[in-house]
Design a protein around this nucleic acid. Sequence first.
DNA 1: GAAACACTTGAACATGTATTCAAGTGTTTA
DNA 2: TAAACACTTGAATACATGTTCAAGTGTTTC
Lengths: 114, 114
Amino acid sequence: MNKADPLSTQELNFLSETFRLLGDPSRLRILLHCEEGPKSVTDISETLELSQSLVSHHLRLLRGARLVTRVRHSKQMFYEISDQHVGDVLLDMLSHVREEREGVAERDASVQHS
Amino acid sequence: MNKADPLSTQELNFLSETFRLLGDPSRLRILLHCEEGPKSVTDISETLELSQSLVSHHLRLLRGARLVTRVRHSKQMFYEISDQHVGDVLLDMLSHVREEREGVAERDASVQHS
DNA sequence: GAAACACTTGAACATGTATTCAAGTGTTTA
DNA sequence: TAAACACTTGAATACATGTTCAAGTGTTTC
């Protein structure tokens, strides 16, 4: 981040890999859904209208980056967000996106059309 | 995020697009470098040892998502991070990555080798 | 105004990745 | 133990994307 606390190559790779995983609409929806509490694969699949296979593939990636954890409950697997930093990041970035989009709307509104 | 404040499809797309842009090591390095203050393209290119063309391509994408802004100063363009949310996000996620990686190290250290 | 500097852009290519489909694993129920 | 349920995995594919190279724009200097 700054000279006193530089990123190692490995940290850089983990960091970018983590962001990359958030950079897909399906995975993002899965994470946002899981933020409400532990969800089963079937629940995610039905709620978001994504195939079970696809959800499972995505959850595997998210689990690999420790963005979610899972616990088995009889036949079902319940997935949840692994720590609050992730939730914080999602909220912070949403603030950014909403502010920027407001900014765009304001600028558009002030344009003089010829 | 929650039922009271749902994401529109457009917001979801902006959000994931923004994360996607952070999900590349080169772009992430560029952003982290620009966090220190406004930087010229040549400065970024030389400091990070990336071709000027590549840096320019990446900056174009970052600018498109309003992650950076630029200002011309005679012949040079100076780029800087557009708002503090972005810096917050980077720091939050870095915390996550570092905690998770510590966790891995601890778990690895406690493994009984046979 | 031509040359030099700083940056941008478009095309091309190689690599990566989201999704689907079909088959496979683990757990419970009859 | 066979069938049903819940989930996972591998292969295949269509599409996206990071990088390079060559050519182009805008600004200053001579």
